[in-house]
Amino acid sequence: MDSEANNYNGRLMVPARFVSEAFGYSVYYEGTRGILFVKSKDYTLDSTKITSSNVQEARVAAISLPIQYSFKSNSLAESDQKLNYTYIFAANDATRYIYDNGSVSTVVEIKDNKANAVWQFSTNGIPGYDLYTTLGGQQPSYIAEILDDHFEHFQGRYKAYYKISNGSTKSFTYQPKNYGELIQPIPLQ
């Protein structure tokens, strides 16, 4: 074990990586969203969910993939200390999204059943940085298209914002029971 087991109020706590790997699972910690991914060796991704015509289902599948980087992620993108975050999608799209933790935004593309970070930029939450200061990767040409549907967790509340056909924005609040309910269906217009 790379860290020791501890007793907390009568409960034995052991490192998740040690226990998972002892039972044949692989473990990957993604710091951007503070998510621990545990996967069995015989797991195969159901790629039909990523390409589903049900946009909500496809978006849930997209955010359930660990984000991988071809560049070094900025340390301010680490979300384990952040309580507020937002997922932003283009209308009727699950193949591209922005994950924003209030300081750094990470643009993610889904290709070949993988979530690849293509650009990280600062937002106005970082002192000394201007909006859209590149922190890693390269700004994609479609960035303006990914600003339609927002799923936000802010100060303990969940709220969805979406654009309607006349260009105005509507919203609704919700309370997810699990990670799969973070993405809600957008009302038909």
Rank of each mutant, 00 (worst) to 15 (best):
V55A: 11
Q56P: 07
A58I: 02
L65P: 02
Q68A: 06
Q68E: 09
Y69A: 00
Y69W: 02
Y69N: 05
S75W: 08
L76H: 13
L76G: 12
A77D: 04
E78V: 13
E78P: 10
S79C: 09
Q81T: 11
Q81D: 01
K82Y: 02
K82M: 07
T86G: 10
T86C: 04
T86D: 05
F89P: 11
F89I: 05
A90W: 01
A90P: 06
A91G: 09
N92F: 07
N92E: 09
D93M: 05
A94V: 09
R96W: 05
R96G: 06
Y97S: 04
I98M: 06
Y99E: 10
D100M: 15
D100Y: 10
G102N: 13
G102D: 00
S103R: 13
S103K: 14
S103Q: 14
V104N: 07
T106I: 11
V107A: 09
V108P: 00
I110A: 07
I110L: 04
K111Q: 10
K111A: 08
K111N: 12
K114S: 02
A115Q: 02
V118M: 08
S122T: 07
S122I: 05
T123V: 06
N124D: 11
N124L: 13
I126P: 05
G128D: 04
G128N: 11
Y129N: 15
Y129H: 15
D130Y: 12
D130A: 15
D130R: 15
L131Y: 15
Y132W: 04
T133D: 03
T134D: 01
G136V: 01
G137R: 13
